[in-house]
Design a protein around this nucleic acid. Structure first.
Lengths: 146, 146
DNA sequence: TTCCTAGTTGAGAATCATTCTCAACTGCTG
DNA sequence: CAGCAGTTGAGAATGATTCTCAACTAGGAA
């Protein structure tokens, strides 16, 4: 079910929550609806301001918890990457990163076939650089998983 | 000059700093050397611990300032993306993001030709998902720049 | 329908990373 | 080798995120 292709009536959203094992509280429905309506990729603060319109008593902490819950349920996705905090790299050659979602290790991955010709115009947007993050399991973690 | 292909002697690193318009202080050389030696994509805290070995008096604030300076000079790169803070997205169809480095706006960009066949084995690393961020200027900001 | 319980909420405190402030210090240009 | 602009260190300040816990409520069971 792609929630975005339907009217955002409460029943449908509530059903999506329940199927994901979450109680369908008004706070959750409001946060989910705000994210479905917006095309701005809002952050927690922006969601909070938006949702306050219809649920003036909601707290910012609830928005954080709700976003975590919806993300955990796969109803919503973070735009920013999984790896926590800043990480630096002195390798200035073009390369991509393999991020292990189990242990957090970041490996460099050089693959010239992925390197596009830049800058390039993508329908009005002038692309200057491409950042690729490959999420998965590193060799060490795969061994442990077995 | 690719710093990584040479011995990390102080003179060479100092020269790189000066060419970038930065004074070659022992703190900067130590931070730069730590990043060049490490393959762990360390964060500020990890760099701090490493550098303390040879410069026990260095402060964490200096590490932050130094990382910013080195990044600004292009000697070092952040692994994590430019967009600040968390941003969420309820668009669950596979798509990439166009991040405008001028205004911070994030546009969705659907391009099925970029979607690789996943999961795939990349030399031991099991890739499950790919996250692509295209950095550049959005149409609005390009108009303003002219 | 009503009851019960596990899950959820709200408010404020707590935490943690990052930035700021400013006086003291030091590369480096002349 | 003198002077200054840039840099450092320590601690305070900021700001985002998480924690804590008592009160509340959705939704399954009776």
């Amino acid at each position: 079910m792609d929630l975005r292709t339907h009217a955002h009536d409460g029943d449908r959203l509530a059903q999506a929550c329940r199927e994901a094992g979450l109680k369908a509280t008004p706070q959750r429905l409001a946060v989910l609806k705000a994210l479905l309506i917006s095309h701005e990729h809002p952050g927690p603060e922006a969601v909070f301001r938006q949702v306050r319109g219809e649920l003036s008593s909601i707290s910012l902490a609830t928005v954080y918890k709700t976003l975590d819950a919806l993300e955990g349920a796969g109803l919503v996705e973070r735009v920013t990457p999984l790896s926590e905090g800043r990480r630096y790299d002195a390798n200035r050659t073009p390369h991509h990163h393999l991020v292990c979602t189990a242990c957090g290790r970041i490996e460099d991955h050089e693959d010239p076939t992925l390197a596009p010709i830049l800058p390039v115009d993508l329908g009005g947007f002038l692309a200057r650089a491409v950042r690729v993050e490959v999420l998965g399991s590193c060799a060490g973690c795969r061994r442990q998983e077995q």
